[in-house]
């Protein structure tokens, strides 16, 4: 690529009459990304390169190497040249749909062409790093136009902790009674006793939990016996009375 542009440069020197020719090329090596080897970029014919000051506007297209060069590489579009550029300070841009290129400052002087990076939004006198001439442009990245819509994803659904908790609970609802059934009856009784000691009777059955009395600070025993009994506590006495009531209703 370098060699080619140098040859072009030599040709330019012979042709220059009254104004200058600014030459350069788009580097087809993809933006560096770790060690991965990426294929060379190919540039579309729709790419336009502009050189602009307040008084001049130049536009050119990517050059195709002469077709006589037989290698397939030669048909790649990459070089460009602005002919008959007069002295001055210009902004060089690449209009490319696919890639994003840096904006360069090109100063065409009496004897030489100087190229700098620019800092957008800064005074024109603030120049960035000096760049080689012929202008060498490397894409800084791929242009992103779209926003990806987040669709429905089963896998993502299962990453949701709420869903996992509810699924776990659901499984437990089915599995726990089975476990209880398989338990040794004595062990079960022990467990029930343990539970009755540790947990206040009102809280053992959330289905019939009397929120009002709980919030009012009434203990289950002092509240209306009927409701406490109805609340089917698993405490020994409670269950006794409940059985009694039920039986009496049966009669």
């Amino acid at each position: 690529m370098h060699l080619q542009s140098l040859i072009l440069l030599a040709a330019a020197a012979a042709q220059t009459v009254s104004a200058y020719t600014v030459r350069g090329f788009l580097d087809p090596t993809p933006p560096s990304s770790s060690s991965q080897i990426l294929p060379k970029l190919s540039y579309a014919p729709s790419i336009e390169i502009t050189l602009r000051s307040s008084t001049a506007y130049h536009k050119t297209f990517l050059q195709s190497a002469p077709v006589s060069a037989s290698s397939s590489d030669a048909e790649q579009l990459s070089g460009f040249a602005f002919v008959n550029v007069s002295e001055g300070s210009y902004q060089l841009r690449v209009n490319c749909i696919e890639h994003i290129f840096p904006v360069l400052r090109v100063d065409v002087g009496e004897n030489e062409v100087e190229v700098f990076l620019t800092h957008p939004g800064n005074d024109w006198t603030v120049t960035g790093a000096r760049q080689p001439y012929p202008v060498e442009l490397k894409p800084v990245g791929k242009a992103v136009y779209y926003q990806v819509r987040e669709g429905f994803n089963v896998l993502k659904l299962f990453k949701n902790p709420m869903l996992i908790i509810s699924l776990f609970t659901l499984v437990m609802v089915f599995v726990l009674p089975k476990m209880m059934e398989n338990m040794d009856p004595e062990q079960l009784k022990e467990l029930q006793e343990q539970q009755s000691k540790s947990v206040p009777p009102t809280l053992t059955n959330p289905m019939n939990f009397d929120m009002a009395s709980y919030l009012a600070g009434k203990s289950s025993s002092s509240s209306s016996g009927e409701s406490a009994a109805g609340a089917s506590s698993s405490s020994a006495s409670g269950s006794e009375s409940a059985k009694g009531q039920a039986r009496s209703r049966k009669h």
Partner: peptide
């Protein structure tokens, strides 16, 4: 002068 196949510019002059 443009290449008909790919639109590449071969040369230009004023």
């Amino acid at each position: 002068v443009f290449v008909e196949l790919n639109g590449g510019l071969l040369w230009e002059s004023n």
